[in-house]
């Protein structure tokens, strides 16, 4: 699973000056869920991905993208 999904959560968090804990609280998941998604250890469900995108008010594709090198 690791490496198939790129994400820009850390970038968006930095822009919004949010800690992992604050983002976790805002979307109702544990901090561990956010930290493991950020490093690519855990692939989030569609619901979590949409909640993160909605929190930052951007389309989900801006935050998550497939790692194309795995599909060539």
């Amino acid at each position: 699973m690791k490496g198939e999904l790129n994400n820009r959560i850390r970038v968006y968090r930095a822009e919004h000056r949010l800690s992992q804990e604050e983002l976790a609280d805002a979307i109702g998941v544990t901090r561990k869920t956010i930290s493991t998604i950020e490093v690519g250890r855990f692939v989030p469900s569609t619901i979590i991905a949409l909640k993160i995108a909605r929190h930052f008010n951007v389309p989900v594709e801006d935050i998550f993208s497939l790692n194309d090198s795995n599909f060539e």
């Binding site: 109702g28 998941v29 544990t30 561990k32 869920t33 493991t36 998604i37 855990f42 989030p44 469900s45 619901i47 979590i48």
Partner: peptide
């Protein structure tokens, strides 16, 4: 209820 998401990392 909000935090016991069936798809959280810990639950996984």
């Amino acid at each position: 209820a909000k935090c016991f998401q069936p798809d959280s990392y810990i639950v996984e």
